[in-house]
């Protein structure tokens, strides 16, 4: 091989692969519209993207797995936690996490309510991008996808007296020990059904034709399911037998009314 030949190898292969790359880029541009639902990029989504950049979110969090590794991935966060929770969290993160206990805390970014709604719109749009199904299983901020596997982690104590924060902590305390049977990750059903999206599920079930309980709204349905597990049975052969739910009874006695309210408030944020 002479130097002239290796130079031709270098120039030729570089030109060839650059051309292939450019051709694929043109194709990607066309397919990206469907894959990212670009029709749904509303002014609010764009404004939310600006908030995302301006507040430097990417230098702690990852989005679509890209960014820094100091804080959780937010690709599916809007779907996982729903707008009411995120709105409340972003207004004051210290109400939900405690720096001494969790070692890390998101600084209060002092976002205006408008900015918060915009960033939620942006994150909701990101969550719907068709990205080959990543992440392969849900990435949770805290807790565990598999019930009972988070023993030894941060002690579940509420960071503030916000009902949602109290309810979230309560969910992982024993009693009532909800987390021992229920996960909050989508599709992870172990002993009891996953409570991911329970607020939406409850709202749908309460109006269903075969609903047998007395609740009239989603919160009422959740409350009823905790206190009277047999009032209406969750579909699935593993969750009830002979018309009796496998969920243990007796939470009427073991939960204070305020605790029950908090638990319902928390579960209502699982959209």
């Amino acid at each position: 091989m002479t130097k002239r030949q290796t130079r031709i190898f270098f120039l030729g292969s570089t030109a060839l692969f650059s051309l292939i790359f450019l051709a694929l880029t043109v194709d990607t541009h066309q397919r990206i519209r469907t894959l990212t639902h670009s029709g749904e990029i509303t002014p609010a989504v764009i404004a939310g993207k600006h908030v995302w950049h301006r507040k430097n979110c990417i230098n702690c969090h990852t989005l679509l797995g890209e960014g820094a590794y100091y804080a959780p991935d937010l690709t599916k966060i809007a779907e996982q936690r729903g707008a009411p929770y995120l709105r409340s969290f972003l207004t004051d993160p210290s109400k939900f996490y405690n720096e001494t206990r969790d070692r890390r805390l998101m600084p209060n970014l002092h976002l205006t309510p408008g900015e918060i709604d915009e960033v939620i719109a942006f994150l909701s749009w990101v969550g719907k991008i068709d990205n080959q199904g990543w992440p392969p299983r849900p990435i949770l901020v805290s807790g565990a996808a598999i019930p009972g596997s988070d023993v030894g982690g941060a002690a579940p104590q509420a960071a503030s007296d916000d009902p949602v924060a109290v309810g979230q902590a309560l969910f992982r305390q024993t009693p009532p020990g909800c987390f021992a049977c229920h996960s909050t990750a989508a599709g992870v059903n172990v002993v009891g059904p996953s409570l991911s999206g329970i607020a939406a599920t409850a709202a749908a079930r309460v109006t269903a034709a075969d609903y047998t309980g007395k609740a009239t709204d989603a919160a009422g349905y959740i409350r009823e399911s905790i206190l009277l597990p047999n009032a209406s049975l969750a579909p699935g052969a593993n969750y009830s037998a002979n018309g009796v739910s496998l969920m243990p009874p007796g939470f009427e006695q073991s939960l204070q009314p305020a605790q029950l309210d908090a638990l319902v408030a928390y579960l209502m944020t699982l959209k």
């Binding site: 969790d102 990435i139 941060a154």
Partner: peptide
């Protein structure tokens, strides 16, 4: 990612 433990834990 595999066991599904929360990020903070």
């Amino acid at each position: 990612r595999i066991l599904g433990l929360g990020y903070l834990e």
